[in-house]
C-alpha cells in the first residue's frame, strides 16, 4: 500500500478507491442487519395475521389509506430526487446535489408531518391497542388490538429511521455546500443514499401490510 494518498484516506487503506468501496460494503452489511431487524417484525406480523385473520382484517380497515398512499408516493419521489443528486455529483455538479438533498430532506419532513397527523387521527378513533376503550369489539377485538400493536411499533420504528435519514441527508447537504464533495470523491453521498433508499424500501413493504392486504380480504 502506498504512503502518499488522497486527503480523505485513512492509513489502513491503499487509496481513496479502496476506502470508498469498503465504506459502501459496510453500509450494505448494515442494511443486511436492518433487513433482519424489520424482517423479524414482519415475520411475526404475518404469523399473527394467519393466526387471527378476522381481527387483522378488521384492524386494517381502520387505517387511513390516503395518508399511507401519499407517504408512499412521497418516499418514492424522495429516493428519485436523491438519486438525481447522486448522478449530479458524479459529474461534479455540487449545487444540484445541494438542492436535491434539501428537497429530499424536505419530503422526509412532510412524511413525518403526515405520519404525526395519521397517529393523531388513529388515537382520536380509539385505535391505541392498550386503551381500555378500543374501537373494535367482540371477536375482532383481540386480533384487532394485535394488528394495532404491530402498526404502532412498525410505524414508530420506521419514523425513527426516517428521522435519522433526514439528519444524514441534511448533513450531506451542508458538507456539499462547504465544497467537500466532487466528481472523484463523494463516498458519504453514496453511503447515505443507500440508507435512504433502504428506509424507502421498508415503507414499500410496510405499506401493503398495513393498508392493502386487510382491505383486499
Amino acid at each position: 500500500m502506498s504512503e502518499d494518498v488522497a486527503p480523505h484516506t485513512h492509513f489502513q487503506y491503499a487509496d481513496a478507491r479502496h476506502q470508498a468501496d469498503s465504506a459502501i460494503a459496510g453500509m450494505w452489511l448494515f442494511l443486511a442487519t436492518e433487513v433482519l431487524f424489520f424482517g423479524g417484525l414482519i415475520l411475526t406480523w404475518i404469523f399473527c395475521r394467519h393466526w387471527q385473520p378476522e381481527g387483522f382484517t378488521a384492524g386494517a380497515h381502520e387505517t387511513v389509506l390516503w395518508i399511507g398512499t401519499t407517504n408512499l408516493a412521497l418516499l418514492l419521489t424522495s429516493s428519485f430526487v436523491y438519486a438525481l443528486g447522486q448522478a449530479a455529483i458524479e459529474v461534479g455538479r455540487v449545487r444540484m446535489l445541494v438542492w436535491c438533498c434539501a428537497l429530499t430532506a424536505g419530503i422526509g419532513v412532510v412524511f413525518i408531518g403526515l405520519k404525526l397527523l395519521e397517529w393523531h387521527i388513529d388515537l382520536d378513533e380509539h385505535l391505541w391497542p392498550a386503551a381500555a376503550r378500543f374501537k373494535l369489539e367482540g371477536g375482532e377485538a383481540a386480533g384487532g388490538r394485535l394488528f394495532w400493536v404491530f402498526y404502532f411499533v412498525a410505524t414508530a420504528l420506521h419514523a425513527v429511521h426516517m428521522a435519522i435519514g433526514i439528519v444524514a441527508v441534511a448533513w450531506i447537504a451542508l458538507r456539499a455546500r462547504r465544497g467537500d464533495f466532487g466528481a472523484h470523491w463523494h463516498t458519504p453521498v453514496t453511503v447515505v443514499g443507500l440508507y435512504w433508499s433502504f428506509v424507502d424500501m421498508v415503507w414499500v413493504v410496510l405499506y401493503p401490510l398495513i393498508y392493502v392486504v386487510g382491505r383486499l380480504t
Partner: peptide, 13 residues
C-alpha cells in the same frame, strides 16, 4: 450481523 437484529426486535416487542 444476522442474529442480533432479531433479538433487538424481540426485545422491542
Amino acid at each position: 450481523l444476522l442474529a442480533t437484529p432479531v433479538l433487538a426486535i424481540t426485545l422491542v416487542l
